[in-house]
Design a protein around this nucleic acid. Sequence first.
DNA 1: GCTAACATGTAATCCGTTACATGATTAT
DNA 2: ATAATCATGTAACGGATTACATGTTAGC
Lengths: 185, 185
Amino acid sequence: MARDSILGYAVLGLLHQEERSGYDLRKIFANTPMGTFSDSPGAIYPALRRLEEQGFVRGQLQASSGRRRRVFRPTASGKRAFRTWQTKAITADDIMHRVDDLMLRFAFMDETASPAQAVRFLRDLARGLRRHMPSLRQFLQANARRMPLSGRLALEKGVRDYEELLRWSRRALAKYTKKKGGRRT
Amino acid sequence: MARDSILGYAVLGLLHQEERSGYDLRKIFANTPMGTFSDSPGAIYPALRRLEEQGFVRGQLQASSGRRRRVFRPTASGKRAFRTWQTKAITADDIMHRVDDLMLRFAFMDETASPAQAVRFLRDLARGLRRHMPSLRQFLQANARRMPLSGRLALEKGVRDYEELLRWSRRALAKYTKKKGGRRT
DNA sequence: GCTAACATGTAATCCGTTACATGATTAT
DNA sequence: ATAATCATGTAACGGATTACATGTTAGC
């Protein structure tokens, strides 16, 4: 529950979809756009062990013949911990420093929480972004003039990324509210 | 030169602008959009020590009265190391896993390399992105259908981010080639 | 006199990287 | 047979987080 790595949550989320082995997870991290995470055995297997020690996943040996293979599933407690992490309030700090975590939290929303929670998340995100952006724009306006071109362009890109994220959250919200009538939080 | 943290490079880049103390750096990381980096003393001071041990920066005590304050400057060797890191070829792995590093490398380009290097970097980046995106789009097309809405939206955001980066690199390139005639690599 | 800001550090701990190690099965 | 892939781990190391520790100076 407490001080977990994002990798741990990524793993826990993936295990909600279907039971998987460490090797399965490695392949996912190696071959898909989820590959922002490490596919190295030195990251995955210790992460699985930690999750198991915390009681968030349970591993089970498959096929006693030859090739041993342990597949993992989340426990009830693991599901609870994931959902708690995923649906907790979005802080200013999340927006400034952990946008990637936010996207991971959202990516699994329909599977491990609910469309209603997805809507709540998107509204929360949009609100956080609207609060954050004025100070960013202000910094840009105050400093852009005396910055060299490369620095200015990099900074503008940073601001633009947040604007894009806000636009994305609005489009996403529209898809949820149009498609389904689901409104209860 | 070898196995350095991004924080180390961020620090080294900032020290190129003017001499700064650990505390100065902390303030920058705490109060500006460079704040993706840690402003904790437990990150900054060890990073400065490592840079000093590598001979990349030199610290000097200021104002012997009361409040001690050490300001750091990059050495010739530190400047070389930074420039090498900054201008090295962009790999597929950089594009898949280290986009933030790429932006940091670019942000200091005018100050620590040259506009010509900036142009070279942007062209290299655009080429890398054009190569990378087909497989991303392909994955999206192949999987989007059977993904839940939240997952699909997150994935689309990922693809869109790369498209935005490509657009940004082209706009940035245009600003370099329009503004100055600087063409030699 | 007290608080906030200035200023620099260390220690415990955790996690990821890199490299190493081992062995089974499938395809050529 | 032998290479590739399946499959799981460990050990050394490095760097970041968190919390602690210490002392100075300026402003109210």
